[in-house]
């Protein structure tokens, strides 16, 4: 088996999208903040966050802050809960949460909770369990979880639980590993994991490992490095990660590296991107791959960052 090309991945992340006329760079414009979160968290896990100019990142982030208290995906974009979490996570990485008006950001998120406990992504009302996770994760980082109706939020998430033990985006929605991460993560943060059928869900999740060692997100779908994060973090949160073959998954992720130019792709021999690079590195971190900082499976931030948030002061 090869090894993680750490130095090359660091270089790749730092130089990402310098190629011209690249399709990905065009569609990335509106989710620049998400890109920053993926890239910077991966850098931190690789032990190289200090190569970044903190003040530059923070001042750019703050220029994406909307007067409503939500962050846009880039300067001048409308606020959305998706970008707000990424912004808060990046600030947490740099221990710079004090630069935001916590009450204002809190109010923005609180305003997105609906009567049934669910969350909308923005003022236009798209509802999805992804947004429940984001709201709960974000408020928890800000120490303001009590500002929403947690009980109702949990109840809504449970209404999206399926007979296979998994969760969908809305009640009755097909179980999907990405949604499962969101629901299990939200339940973990709110201390409600006892409401998950861990054995049933754990079995569904470990069935996601296919012969190549990779994980898929639903039955009969192709494996993809991003599920190394979503499936694995869920399994970790419910203490069932040993049910899959760690060695085979590590090999699958390592096989998805571009060993020449750095970066990780969805499957072996595909084009790399910063999204899959983050999820590959994060997955390896959960698998305790040597040389990587450990990552927290619920907050999707390095464990030392999470500890700093909750155990200092």
């Amino acid at each position: 088996m090869g090894e993680l090309a750490t130095e090359k991945h660091v270089r790749y992340i730092l130089s990402v999208e310098k190629r011209k006329d690249n399709f990905e760079s065009v569609v990335m414009e509106h989710l620049r903040i998400n890109g920053a979160y993926w890239g910077l968290t991966a850098l931190d896990l690789l032990g190289k966050l200090d190569t970044v100019d903190v003040d530059e990142v923070v001042s750019w982030l703050m220029s994406c802050l909307h007067e409503s208290g939500g962050f846009g995906g880039n300067v001048g974009h409308d606020p959305h809960i998706l970008y707000t979490l990424s912004a808060v996570q990046v600030l947490a990485l740099f221990d710079k949460l004090d630069v935001i008006d916590v009450d204002k950001v809190t109010n923005y998120i609180v305003s997105l909770q609906n009567e049934d406990g669910s969350f909308s992504g923005d003022m236009w009302g798209e509802v999805d369990t992804r947004f429940s996770y984001i709201a709960i994760c974000c408020l928890s980082i800000l120490h303001r979880l009590e500002k929403i109706d947690v009980e109702k939020a949990v109840k809504y998430i449970l209404s999206c639980k399926n007979m296979d033990g998994g969760f969908g985006c809305t009640p009755g929605g097909e179980s999907h590993a990405g949604q499962i991460f969101c629901c299990v993560g939200a339940l973990a943060i709110t201390g409600s994991l006892d409401l998950v059928d861990k054995d049933l869900l754990g079995w569904w999740l470990c069935e996601r490992q296919v012969k190549s060692g990779g994980l898929n997100g639903r039955p009969e779908k192709l494996p993809d490095v991003c599920y190394s994060w979503w499936v694995l973090s869920s399994l970790t949160m419910i203490d069932r990660v040993h049910w899959i073959s760690k060695e085979k998954l590590i090999k699958f992720i390592i096989d998805c590296q571009d060993t020449e130019n750095g970066g990780i792709s969805d499957r072996p021999d595909d084009a790399v991107d910063v999204f899959h690079t983050f999820f590959g590195v994060a997955g390896l971190s959960l698998l305790e791959y040597p040389g990587l900082k450990p990552i927290d499976p619920a907050y999707a931030l390095p464990v030392d960052v999470v500890n700093r948030i909750f155990f200092t002061k």
Binding site: V16, E17, D53, E56, S63
Partner: peptide, 11 residues
């Protein structure tokens, strides 16, 4: 306005 030296530069 990408701000000074953005983290994820885009062409």
């Amino acid at each position: 306005n990408d701000g000074p030296n953005p983290v994820v530069p885009i062409q």
